[in-house]
Design a protein around this nucleic acid. Structure first.
Length: 645
RNA sequence: GCCGGCGUAGCUCAGUCGGUAGAGCAACGGUUUCGUAAACCGUAGGUCGGGGGUUCGAUUCCCUUCGCCGGCUCCA
């Protein structure tokens, strides 16, 4: 009997009869592995455990611990979902059903919408199928025959997929009566799926094309253990609790008003003060780092946007132009043209480069109504924008300074986790990009080597560059692990030439400067939203709208309470007085709900001793402190922008 | 924009299988003067998102429109 040599990850190898299945190999190692294994990697290819090994190959078993494990498991969970749906609803036609970062989904074409009740029914059907422990059987079909089969079953979406994607002989998986065109691999049987839950149903389109079939997408998630599933569900609940839209209302930070229009933000006094603090800090930093502050108009002649090219490539994101005295004006969707006009207002010498022009620039972009979301996605927002005009040889230093600035900003606001992405061009499509190959080459190298030099780990994103230049994006990771894209540092090969920007070099001749766009917080609105969710509205003292709240126990201490308030305010501490005719407990409760970091209770004892009884937002009663001691202590906490105390 | 869901008092929500609505909190008035997460009593508050239709009668059914929520797509 011919045999095959199978090599294990530890380097050892053994002989097995040719045609041995991966599962049999696993069994030969131990029953525990055989029970745990979900799939295998043979010769670097992911395969089912039923896969027969016909030639010498290295093998590796995919267990729940392997990075691919969860993905395969969830993919099988998606098949389980489709098996249940097609069983319960013969009029539902499956589309595609992949695993996602947080679970899986499956798309179906069906006239009638799925309801919440349907989800419950589907879920119990899925449990039945799990209990029945049906095998996930891998089958092979010649393309035409398979297509015919799907056609006879009425599965027109599957037919289309086979037509487009299938190899001459393609694989399919059968789970009970459900047959799916699928590359695999899958876990051996449905009984292996332990913990799953259907989450929601939402609309989607066949192949993401809104002119194609409207589909219904059922989302679910699956984990290896019930505990992990519960943790995940708890995390969703936690995220709901942190929702900035809810907190924004409760804490009176901001609002969006029907009368004004969707996606337009009203900053209320409490939010306004937070914004002021953020902006003040930011402007100080900008000046320290050699930026100049500018302001540019919100509407400018339309022809400027024609020169910049926005009327071509950005038109669908712009508000309509308005007529003014035989001319047309455009509400600005970006700040760059304004800054360019300032740059061009006079001749520039190489001696003054780099010119770093910063503006908290408010821009308006038309976003399709369905995409708006609280502060995160709006139609009017303020960018902490800057444009750096520099000589090509200054690029690397400028990029490094931007990235360092970005990290400084993130850490100042209490974010210590982030992910960096480097988006470069798709070399296969040079026609998609402005600028020459050489320019791109130089810019990409500059970005990459800057990150390398800074020892910043980054994810290369080939093909993700915008048409006018490569970019570095920084995504911060918030308190509950969600990434948010805020910072972007982008090269621009387009605008300097469109606006014929120049500087006079040491050689006395005109040169074209390189332009870098960069935003660190991105948009103040979105950043505020992220900040609210990161802190669940309980901002560090330096950002809190109200830093201290004085609570007299009764009317008897009114005069002393006002005295304390004046002293704190005199020290620049944002202080309020709550002398409402409510019990102390009630006022403390309100202050806790408003997330005021320090509550200062004053009764006769405190008045007597010229002090306050400090209550901390997070840890409660902290006891007596003399006012003369408390003020400098809090002042220092604020000045150092402490996140914890 | 598209698919699905939703829109009842300032907020959170109940309710009417078609006979024009109710609770808690908030607000306001009073009593109470209180020691670390909700004192008590009372008062007022809604053309049931807007418009149109069906009907003797619409908050309820139908159409339309605006907005919100979850997605698709895109992005700061």
């Amino acid at each position: 009997m011919p045999s095959v040599q199978i090599t294990f990850p530890d380097g050892t190898s053994r002989e097995f009869p040719q045609g041995v299945t991966a599962l049999e190999v696993a069994k030969s190692i131990g029953p525990r592995l055989a029970a745990e294994a979900l799939a295998a990697k043979v010769d670097g290819r992911l395969v089912d455990l039923t896969h027969r090994i016909e030639s010498d190959a290295p093998i590796q078993f995919i267990t729940p611990a392997a990075p691919e494990g969860l993905e395969i498991y969830r993919h099988s969970a998606a098949h389980l979902l489709a098996a249940a749906v097609t069983d319960l609803f013969p009029d539902a036609h499956p589309g595609v059903g992949p695993p996602t970062d947080t679970g899986f989904f499956y798309d179906f074409y069906r006239e009638k919408p799925f309801t919440e009740d349907d989800l419950a029914k589907i879920e119990s059907k899925m449990r039945e199928i799990v209990k029945a422990d049906l095998p996930n059987e891998r089958l092979y079909f010649p393309k035409e025959e398979g297509k015919k089969l799907f056609d006879q079953m009425g599965e027109f979406l599957k037919c289309e997929l086979v037509e487009e994607k299938a190899e001459p002989v393609f694989s399919a998986y059968r789970t009970g009566k459900f047959l799916d065109f699928c590359r695999g691999p899958h876990i051996p049987s449905t009984g292996r799926i332990k913990a799953f839950k259907l989450l929601s149903v939402a609309g989607a389109y066949w192949k993401g094309d809104e002119h194609s079939y409207p589909l219904q997408r059922i989302y679910g998630t699956a984990f290896f253990t019930a505990r992990e599933l519960d943790e995940f569900l708890a995390k969703i609940e936690e995220a709901k609790k942190r929702d900035h839209r809810r907190l924004g209302k409760e804490l009176e930070l901001f609002s969006i008003q029907d009368d004004a229009g969707p996606g337009l933000i009203f900053w209320h006094p409490k939010g306004g003060i937070v914004r002021k603090v953020i902006e003040d800090w930011l402007r100080d930093e900008l000046l320290k780092r050699g930026y100049e502050l500018v302001f540019t108009p919100h509407v400018m002649r339309l022809h400027l946007w024609e020169t910049s090219g926005h009327t071509n490539f950005y038109r669908e994101n712009m508000f309509g132009a308005m007529d003014v005295e035989n001319d047309r004006y455009q509400l600005k969707p970006m700040n760059c043209p304004g800054h360019i006009l300032i740059y061009k207002s006079r001749r520039r010498s190489y001696r003054e480069l780099p010119v770093r022009m910063a503006e908290l620039g408010t821009v308006y972009r038309y976003e399709r109504s369905g995409v708006l979301h609280g502060l995160m996605r709006v139609r009017g927002f303020t960018q902490d924008d800057a444009h750096i005009f520099c000589a090509p040889e200054q690029l690397e230093d400028e990029v490094q300074a931007c990235v360092e600035f970005a990290f400084a900003v993130l850490s100042a606001f209490g974010f210590d986790r982030y992910e960096v992405e480097l988006s470069t061009r798709d070399p296969a499509h040079p026609e998609h990009y402005a600028g020459t190959i050489e320019e791109w080459e130089r810019a990409e190298v500059a970005l990459r080597s800057t990150l390398d030099r800074m020892k910043v780990p980054f994810k290369p994103m080939p093909g993700e560059a915008v048409f006018y230049g490569p970019k570095i994006d920084v995504k911060l990771v918030d308190a509950i692990g969600r990434p948010w894209q805020l910072t972007t540092v982008q090269f621009d090969f387009n605008l300097p030439s469109r606006f014929e920007l120049e500087y006079v070099g040491a050689d006395g001749r005109p040169h074209t400067p390189v332009m870098v766009h960069r935003a660190l917080l991105g948009s103040i609105e979105r950043f505020f939203g992220v900040l609210i969710e990161h802190y669940t509205g309980a901002f560090p003292a330096w950002l809190s709208p109200v830093q201290a709240l004085v609570l007299p126990i009764s009317e008897k201490q009114a005069a002393y309470a006002r005295e304390v308030v004046e002293k704190l305010r005199g020290a620049g501490i944002r202080t309020e007085l709550d002398d409402r005719n409510e019990k102390l407990n009630a006022r403390i409760r309100d202050a806790q709900l408003q997330k005021v970091p320090f509550m200062l209770v004053v009764g006769d004892r405190e008045a007597q001793a010229q002090g306050v009884a400090v209550r901390r937002r997070d840890t409660g009663d902290a006891g007596f402190r003399p006012v003369a001691e408390f003020i400098p202590w809090l002042r220092q906490l604020i000045d150092t922008r402490a996140v914890k105390w």
